[in-house]
Design a protein around this nucleic acid. Structure first.
Lengths: 158, 158
DNA sequence: GTCAGTGCAAACTTTTTGCAACTAC
DNA sequence: GTAGTTGCAAAAAGTTTGCACTGAC
């Protein structure tokens, strides 16, 4: 499934580059492969390290260039959160609903069919809609547990 | 209505500062007033200029301090968009649905009751929900018109 | 009088840019 | 050969921080 995705997104990129007479550089495909080797979101720093290890060195500028291209092709989404910018592979993710843990920063895709349907039914006046993203902020169960533990410790110590 | 809001948010801030034994500095209230004198969103730069003109000079650090405090009190929302960080007064805005024009950067609140209802009905597993924001990206009618005009001009010239 | 809060400038982080070198076509 | 891409380093943009000073309480 994941390797399937890699092939599919490579084809999308190839077609786009062909159609627009742009170059199919090894850097671009290396970045795309690196992006699609992540489970979930990652920072520029993490992507840079991953590509350095498992693929081949690419400059920061090229990383940004490639990511911007992929975002415009909807192969990657960019989350600008308070804890920093995170990217995420987005091929075959039908919706764009995410839950964000404000304690640990984890971003997870969520299924919200009712919300998506409601959105499709919502008409906007004087606005040509392209896409959307929904962010639900809160605290994940792991972090809730950690916080509770810390509070108990404090209580016992005082 | 707007002056009402100003009074209301000043009271909320006062109460919070009292309760937490923090200081009611003129800077904080000046920033809050400046924030609530905007219609819609603004950047740090715009806020800085506004407060310089109509209220009184405040350093950049204080501006950030105050805004962070207000965000945590839900008196202000922070939009981290690709064109930069924008802030917006958020008192008495029941929902958190925005439409963002990717051409001019304009952020407008939208009413999406169906979406809000659907969201309330959506249960998240292992996640304690605090808040949400929905961003609908697209192009506003003004920008659509501008783009169309530009295209026609190009066509006629070639 | 005390200490939270402020101003200032420096530091830091993240992203963009200019330009020479490279390479896909 | 040409022009799109890349790497590098410098610059720019945005935000945070350290510290001395101030002023709210």
């Amino acid at each position: 499934m994941k390797e399937n995705n890699k092939t599919a997104v490579r084809q999308i990129l190839t077609k786009y580059l062909d159609d627009n007479k742009l170059r199919k550089t090894p850097e671009r495909f290396a970045v795309l492969d690196a992006v699609y080797s992540f489970n979930g979101h990652f920072s520029i720093q993490e992507l840079s390290e991953k590509i350095e290890e498992d693929f081949f060195p690419v400059s920061r500028a090229t990383l940004y260039n490639a990511l911007n291209l992929f975002v415009s092709l909807h192969l990657v989404v960019c989350h600008r959160l308070s804890m920093g910018t995170m990217y995420q592979a987005s091929y075959e993710s039908a919706n764009h609903c995410y839950q964000v843990c404000t304690a640990c920063g984890k971003v997870a895709e969520i299924k919200a069919p009712k919300v998506e349907q409601a959105l499709d039914e919502t008409r906007l006046k004087r606005f040509r809609r392209d896409s959307y993203s929904l962010y639900v902020y809160g605290v994940c169960s792991t972090c809730v547990a950690k916080i509770t533990r810390k509070k108990n410790k404090k209580r016992l110590n005082s």
